[in-house]
């Protein structure tokens, strides 16, 4: 049993090692994406700083500081979750373009092990990027984390990552089945999740039908909980109302995502879609 688990871990690690090797070879592109992440996060933070000037309201320093942190928590948490989401789909799309997907699928690696390996690689990248963006943003914008409850924030991030993995696996079906446009389809799903999850605003401002969608997005709970932990210092018990729904979404989305991926693989094998040139 332990030997078998060790063997599966070794197989899963192949995908992590591969992604690290690819990141090293594409280091310039990684730098571009990092700069992009820093710039977009800074842009959002400056909107917060400029709020009094834009709205013509009063300049209460504490309120502005809270507003900036509110936006930063949203944008950086979304960056972290979004990277998980994007990376899964992009890896499948990349393998389709390179033609290596056939060799990956032909290898004696159970699909669950394969996807766990991909998730591991994705998490390593998402954590690295998010920490770097937070550090870079802190150089420009004063971030007051004196009230933050770090353990609660970490628990929420881990839960959010798990919940997003299911969504990401499910969306990776698009590039698996449609080489040319599949990735864009996955991006549409991501954009909808961004819209309804309260990344930059409370979901209460959304129309009722969008609020209904926000209920099934794990990002809604993770971002709301992160704000409670980092702005108001809520502990794990305090963020529980947001933690348990994220756990439930994860518990549902992972088996559903996996099932969708397995169905897509079987469909691709039936219709000959794994071969890019048809």
């Amino acid at each position: 049993m332990i030997a078998s688990l060790g063997a599966q871990a070794g197989l899963a690690y192949a995908f992590v090692e591969r992604e690290i090797a690819l990141s090293r070879r594409y280091w310039a592109w990684e730098l571009v994406w990092l700069v992009y992440g820093v710039v977009t996060s800074l842009s959002v933070a400056y909107i917060g700083l400029a709020a009094p000037a834009i709205s013509g309201g009063a300049t209460d320093a504490a309120a502005i500081s809270r507003f900036v942190l509110y936006l930063l928590v949203g944008t950086i948490t979304w960056r972290f979750l979004g990277l998980i989401f994007e990376q899964m789909g992009e890896t499948i799309a990349w393998e389709r373009w390179e033609g290596t997907i056939e060799y990956t699928f032909m290898a004696p690696v159970p699909r669950l092990t394969h996807l766990i390996g991909m998730c591991g690689a994705t998490l390593v990248r998402a954590i690295g990027f998010s920490v770097a963006i937070l550090a870079a943003v802190a150089l420009f914008i004063p971030v007051d984390l004196s009230h933050a409850n770090a353990p609660a924030a970490i628990v929420l991030l881990v839960t959010g990552a798990v919940a997003f993995i299911g969504l990401a696996i499910g969306s990776a079906v698009f590039p698996l089945l449609w080489t040319e446009k599949g990735l864009q389809m996955a991006y549409i799903v991501q954009a909808v999740v961004l819209l309804v999850s309260g990344v930059y605003y409370p979901t209460t401002v959304l129309p009722a039908w969008m609020q209904a969608l926000s209920v099934i997005s794990p990002a809604t709970y993770v971002i709301r909980g992160m704000r409670a932990a980092l702005l108001d210092g809520a502990d794990v018990g305090g963020v529980w109302p947001d933690l348990w729904p994220a756990l439930v979404v994860g518990a549902i989305s992972i088996p559903l995502g996996l099932r969708a991926f397995l169905w897509a693989e079987a469909h691709a094998k039936r219709t000959g879609r794994l071969k890019r040139s048809g």
Binding site: Y13, R18, A21, E98, G99, Y103
Partner: peptide, 20 residues
Amino acid sequence: SFFKKLSAMENLVYAARLYG
């Protein structure tokens, strides 16, 4: 079909790992 930016060694070490 390979990861074209990776070296022959990197591609082959990865491929061998998939077979244990």
